[in-house]
Amino acid sequence: MGALLILALGLWGAGRFASEYQVRLLNNMAVFITLAVSYNLINGVCGQLHLGPNAFIAVGAYTAALLTLSPEGKQAIFLIDPLIWPLSKLTLPFPVALLAGGLTAAFAGLVTGFPVFRFRGDYLAIVTLGFGEVVRVLANTLQGVTNGPLGLKGLQPYTTLTWSWGVAVFTVAVVMSLAKSGYGCALKAIREDETAARAMGVDTFRHLMLAYVLSAFFMGVGGGLLAHLITTISPSLFTFFLTFNLLIIIVVGGLGSTTGAVVSAIVFTLAGEWLRVIEEPHQILGLTFPGIPGLRMVIFSALLLFTILFFRRGLLDRSEFSWEAVGNLCRRWHNSKKNQQNSL
């Protein structure tokens, strides 16, 4: 509760005093928190390597974008093939469009979940990767719905701090309470030992499906937010690259830790901006060093490799943030100080 209040106050302050660039950064952060936390539900909590979040983000982004665009705007961008009928006349308010994006993504999750959860391990990874690829191909070829490689332009920048952080907080709350509930325990049991979980009477398919559809829903909503944040979407935005970024976030944060995913998403967004410095030319001691474009991704992928090789548990392992833990930490610190004084 306290954290929420601080966050609300901080956002209110940011909304009033921060520059446009900072607001944008904050929005980015929130969207990545939403995506990473919902992605972590499958990869961390259920322990299934799912490589297709880009598919659901794309579905959500396209749905939400098509629903908020005005009919005139649609006519202006669909040059090659006109948009198919009901969508071409329809314009909905942003919240409804977001919800619709989430629901469409959840539906996509439901449909793909049936084949996906007949597999485990590597095969599950490759099949979900395949779905990501298929959605990208569809976005490229279904001219009448997605406008093909040209993408959708001129979306209204509806994603404000309230919306992005509201959704992020809601996602975190839902995922955390789900992970703590009986359902969450069952999911963790599946992660640790699926055979044993099934022997205990856990319906693995139904549990995994629920988590998968829920995560798809939040990814869809996150996709809608992303679309209205950058206001232009095209199939090239939703490649495996996006999945890879999310994977870095949750692995570095600690697979299975929602707090880890949140912290890591924040750090990742900031680091992406700070590291821009190394890609620009610099003058050090009178010598000009040319910037090296692309070095950021080298650092990020090296970081992922390093984390998985040496800190397999990530930043936070599977632990979560709680005020009690903070209290304990303070007390321990206080005690150690007292002990020091005593020994003196």
Binding site: N43, G47, L49, L51, G121, D122, A125, F244, L247, V251, L255, G294, M297, V298, F300, S301, A302, L304, L305, I308, L309, R312
Partner: peptide, 18 residues
């Protein structure tokens, strides 16, 4: 296994970006 797969993906991206 999941760690091994992630390591493979990371290695692949490292090569591409290098």
């Amino acid at each position: 296994r999941i760690s091994l797969l992630i390591s493979a993906i990371a290695a692949s991206f490292l090569l591409e970006n290098l």
